[in-house]
Design a protein around this nucleic acid. Structure first.
Length: 546
RNA sequence: UGGGCCGUCGCCAAGCGGUUAAGGCAUCGGGUUUUGAUCCCGACAUACGUAGGUUCGAAUCCUACCGGCCCAGCCA
């Protein structure tokens, strides 16, 4: 594995902080997902960043669920997120929930009201929106902005007790309605929501909003570097304002980085959900999905994902990463570790007419070219299957696989020559009549041939379905479903694989020689054995042809 | 049109006033290899969004432009 690229503008900042003892040389990060959906590769970038930084500086990294909106959140998501983080082999030092701080948050809110930094507003959502101003015009103070402290305190408590309906009142920070930073125009920090929370049940009728919750949660956990994505840059001023006004002893530093975007893919929960709802994919863990669960089912390993994250770097520049970078990481890992077997996607029957009927022999084939001492045995007899793509009746230039009259080697076995092409009434090729050169079992004795193709023994190969995957969209930056790649899934229903494959092992990744890397689909039905193509082998021949 | 950010090779990304402007992916040559894979070797930015300026010296500092992203949820 490559040495991870573990320095970036954030570690530079931390180095500086450490040298000035800003946090006493301490480093404490956190990964703060909202449990309202499944994690994707973009989250993996954040997970790797936060946990790797903690590791690098002998610090800590917490897992914290930002669960302040019970409407969208659930236990199911909490569990899936925990599972995904654990699958990536990261161990959080502490696990917290923003909802654990509801009491402290409430107390801080009261303090802010008392200090004239917050007030209860009876304005409707529409009124608040109207008075907020625009990007170029300042906002206007709410009629309730100077509500007496005692009154705000009383209403706030009544809100908590459930005396009011949703929308009747909100608690707002009193900052500056004319600020050029719209986040500072008296942001709402508490709203009434008469919804049962998945962790606090019916204890609360009011729930704090992100801006109020996040900074205080960080401070409570004594986080030093609060890493988040670019869209929160404008919120930093508010983050710092709140920490200052509540006079918290801890002052975490928020640092923003660019979120991950992949070419020919989408990353937003909404767009991912669209793919599912439109039935273009079969769920959050469809092997084409950029979700952690999708990647896992596809056959990616935790290491390959971490390797990917270290390769793409961390900056403040919005950019799209080519899918090839991701694919390359798993290809590189599997090249070293995956055992080799053979499998044909589109079987074409080959009868070796001069091979004795009812006879069979065993050939040896290395499990991995890196270890010449580990072999597997493969049976071969009179009938084999090869891939249709390895035969061309009228070969194009430089095609050095099988064609009429041509000799190629069956990998690990011997050379065969195509004598006759057999077709059905429609003119489709149904079978090839070939002869073999028994001398060529010894690789030094047969003719030197340029073509080498893979095959399976007809008598004992295993019938499987092989799923080939490609990028989800044809456009680099998809706007919507219009550019969905209809060929993103190709099912090879008649595929056949060598019987050395352990079909009961759902975790073992194989290289089907000359084709790609495969893993048994965890969702295979009992009657159909499905193998997922994790990634193909590089194919410069295909590239050259254009 | 207010504010906050960003612009170094096709895609990422080092670089922090003096370097031949790292590295990875991709691409293109060549070698090894009976996986058109792997592996190895080589090529690949006189150029850092543009234009000025400061300086003996600038991708690095200053100014002005140009281009892109984000912000007007009682979402996070």
């Amino acid at each position: 594995m490559e040495k991870p690229n573990d320095t970036n503008f954030i570690t530079n900042t931390i180095d500086k902080d450490n040298s000035t003892k800003k946090f006493g040389g301490r480093v404490h990060t956190r990964f703060p997902p909202e449990p309202n959906g499944y994690l994707h590769i973009g989250h993996a970038k954040s997970i790797c960043l936060n946990f790797e930084i903690a590791k690098k500086y002998n610090g800590k990294c917490n897992l914290r669920f930002d669960d302040t909106n019970p409407e969208k959140e659930s236990e199911e998501y909490i569990n899936s997120i925990k599972r995904d983080v654990a699958w990536l082999e990261y161990n959080w030092d502490e696990i917290h929930f923003a909802s654990d701080y509801f009491n402290e948050l409430y107390t801080y809110a009261i303090e802010l009201i008392k200090n004239n930094y917050a007030y209860i507003d009876s304005s409707s959502a529409e009124e608040i929106k109207k008075l907020r101003g625009t990007l170029t015009e300042p906002g206007i103070n709410s009629k309730d902005r100077n509500r007496p402290t005692e009154e705000s305190l009383r209403i706030f408590e009544e809100m908590r007790n459930g005396n009011y309906e949703e929308g009747e009142y909100v608690l707002r920070l009193k900052i500056d309605m004319s600020s050029s930073n719209i986040n500072m125009r008296d942001p709402v920090i508490y709203r009434i929501k008469k919804i049962r929370h998945h962790r606090t049940g019916n204890d609360w009728q009011i729930y704090p909003l992100y801006d109020f919750t996040h900074c205080i949660s960080d401070a409570q956990e004594n986080i030093t570097h609060s890493l988040c994505t670019l869209e929160f840059e404008d919120h930093r001023e508010l983050y710092d304002w709140i920490i200052e006004k509540i006079q918290h002893k801890n002052k975490p530093q928020q640092i923003e980085f660019a979120r991950l975007m992949l070419e020919n893919n989408v990353m937003s929960k909404r767009k991912l959900a669209e793919l599912i709802e439109s039935k273009n994919v079969d769920g959050w863990d469809d092997p084409r999905m950029p979700t952690i669960s999708g990647l896992r089912r596809r056959g990616f390993t935790p290491n390959s994902i971490k390797d990917f994250c270290s390769r793409i770097g961390v900056t403040k520049k919005n950019s799209f990463i080519e899918m090839g970078v991701l694919e390359n990481t798993i290809r590189e890992e599997l090249n070293l570790s995956a055992e080799r077997v053979m499998g044909v996607l589109d079987p074409l029957k080959v009868t070796i007419s001069n091979y004795p009927k009812d006879e069979e022999e065993v050939v040896k084939a290395p499990n991995n070219p890196s270890n010449k001492n580990s072999y597997r045995n493969i049976n071969i007899s009179r009938e084999v299957y090869i891939d249709r793509s390895d035969f061309m009746e009228i070969p194009e230039k430089k095609y050095f696989r099988l064609s009429p009259g041509k000799e190629v080697r069956l990998r690990h076995a011997f050379n065969i020559t195509c004598q006759k092409v057999i077709k059905n009434a429609k003119g489709d090729i149904t079978e090839l009549d070939c002869t073999y050169d028994s001398e060529s079992r010894d690789i030094n004795k047969g003719n030197k041939v340029k073509g080498m193709i893979h095959w399976v023994n007809a008598k004992d190969c295993i019938d499987v379905q092989i799923n080939l995957y490609d990028r989800l969209f044809t456009e680099a930056n998809p706007k919507g479903l219009e550019s969905f790649n209809e060929d993103s899934l190709v099912e090879k229903n008649n595929a056949k694989i060598e019987n050395n494959v352990n079909i009961d092992n759902y975790d073992k990744r194989y290289q089907f020689e000359r084709v790609g890397y495969f893993i048994r689909d965890k969702k295979s039905k009992d009657n159909i054995i499905i193998y997922n193509q994790i990634v193909s082998l590089k194919d410069t021949w295909k590239n050259k042809k254009g």
